[in-house]
Amino acid sequence: MGYASTQPTGKAEMRCPQSMIAELMEIADYISHMRTEIAALRANEMTRDRIPMAHEELGNVLQATAGATNTIMEAAEAMLALPDDAEYRANVEAQIYTIFEACAFQDITGQRIGKVVEALRNFELRLARFASAVRARDEGGIDPAEAERRERAERLLLNGPQPNGPAVAQDDIDALFA
């Protein structure tokens, strides 16, 4: 090892000690502020509790809606297949009560979705606070899997359902095919 690395070579090393101390104190303050903001993000709690909870709740919602749809469709199919006999009305009523019972899923799934929405709102608040505190800027490209997904969606016009119902009304589509 030579002496060259310890010799003053640039403007930074020529600063007066007071200026350097002030700068170091500013950096120390920033680091302390960052630590506070990172702690406020509570990343461990998010990854350990809230994100798995959201996954689990949404999985349950999916399962409950699929189960209820299946029950309702089975009841409807059973009604369609009923013979037109003296028992017809009683049999239809029995299937209708099955449909009513199956519709109870909506109350439970509503509550589950409410929990997920609350968790998302919480993430949003924490991330917004953190991004503002560290003056975060979005840089860098997206990961290859996401880039591929976006390219496929664009190429194959996979826009999905529109937020407020169909973008083009069925009547307008019909006019195009008339």
Binding site: L157, Q162, P166, A167, A169, Q170, I173, L176, F177
Partner: peptide, 24 residues
Amino acid sequence: AESKTENVIAAKKAGVNNYIVKPF
């Protein structure tokens, strides 16, 4: 459920005979 104009136009250009938007 793809109801954007570009979807309907693309399908018609590709030779679809008719187009129904979900739910129907």
